[in-house]
Amino acid sequence: MIKFNDENLAEVEKLIQHYPEGKQKSALIPVLHLAQSQFNGWLDVPVMDYVASLLKIEPIEVYEVASFYSMFNLKPVGKYMFEVCHTGPCMINGSDKIISYINQKLNIGVGGTTEDGIFTLKTVECLGACGYAPMMQLGKNYREHLTEEKIDAIIDECRGNNSDTINNFNKMNA
């Protein structure tokens, strides 16, 4: 049974209050963010149907939104997603090299997930960190001025966190 935890349910209630009566659909994108963080980093159809029922809208209204925005994953992803920017300003500062280093280091292509399910590599378009390029998004934060050494350290950091007992996915991707 798919259901938000109490904390997220309370958050949904709060979000709906931000809009005039009857306009609860406006909470859809924030609610999908909550859903993605609680349900393993991606939006499965039953999850989207649950969100539709919560907001009293049709499932198609959720699907069409989830498929439009690049931050919503419609397929399973690794626990840690490396979202490396490769638009102009990052390209000028060597994002291609960073991407191929990650390819080689984790033995995955762009869009791929490591066999242990820990890492996914994705390329993204401009994230607004052009002055601090090359960069990537990891969970809630940006990692900037990337070098091969920094990538090594980030990979170690994720692997270290992964052995912790707490749910690190939520910690890093909340």
Partner: peptide, 23 residues
């Protein structure tokens, strides 16, 4: 309100659509 990754939502009417919970 947080968006979810779409350059087009910087265009003001697209932004309003997004704020209304749409594409």
């Amino acid at each position: 309100q947080r968006g979810a990754g779409a350059y087009i939502c910087g265009e003001e009417t697209a932004l309003l659509e997004s704020l209304e919970g749409k594409r």
